[in-house]
Amino acid sequence: MSEIASMLTDPLMQRALLAALLVGAAAPVVGTYLVQRRLALLGDGIGHVALTGVALGWLVGSAMGLVPNDVLAIPGAVVAAVVGSVLIEVVRRRGRTSGDLALAIMFYGGIAGGVLIITVAGGSSGSLMAYLFGSISTVTTTDLILTVVLCLVILAVGVGLRPALFSVSHDEEFAVSSGLPVWALNMAVAVLAALTVTVAMRVVGLLLVSALMIVPVAIGQLVTHSFRRTMGVGSVVGVVVCVTGLSISYWYPLSPGALIVVLAIGVYAVVAGLHPLLARRRPAGDPHPDIPDDVQVAPRAPADADCTP
């Protein structure tokens, strides 16, 4: 008990827990829209692009002689992620066939560009490790303020505009025919995804960002039929695994980012395993009670009675 108290009074841990809590709540909200649009891997693509942003921020920081030289890394990641995400959305709208390739090229370009630029900036690819795999234990107060603000924006837009974002993600053609500002709503989802990637970068790292957005949603849709509740369950699962994973890493020398993702996948495996048992509990009623029972099925004739010419 006193160990929990000491964890909660550690200012470093307080900052980290607050960041994990908010990111855990926000990431699945955006992830729900991405899964709905069948863009579950978009977060990965944006993460790769954000790496170039991190390196560019580093480069600019070094050139300006800022101390520490990675102070612009997160703003750089925000800018690169938003630009990349908007570009992907534009490509997606232009032609659906080339979108897949454009996405792939962006993935590779993002990683390669990041590694090249970081060496130009005087770092090594090792300097990027903290961003690739997360570094929640080094969250500074400035980082925390940025994270809190961005998470609140993501939650406000993602939950507040849910009906409209659902409509656009569910059936874009119908949304257009309703006169909804479809272009702006699509851009909103793209920017939300970019912001989520950059805030989650500190918690689980760019390589695992997508997991935090997608796996809780996968758990949510196992247990409910409704879009709204899938989002709610996803968000709760996100908070629970982030806070639990981070707390465990306080006592054991484990990477919190990897631990959070493994926990989420573990929860998914357990729920998926229990799912058939839970589903069978429901009464097996006639799925179409409104269809009249007007067809009488004759008893089967003995097997040797048919097939004879």
């Binding site: 729900t32 899964v35 709905q36 649009r37 069948r38 579950a40 659902f166 993600s169 569910h170 949603v217 849709q221 409910t224 039929h225 409704s226 879009f227 709204r228 899938t230």
Partner: peptide, 11 residues
């Protein structure tokens, strides 16, 4: 078969 389930009322 959209990615996330939704109820008839939501649609």
């Amino acid at each position: 078969a959209a990615g996330v389930p939704s109820t008839a009322a939501e649609v």
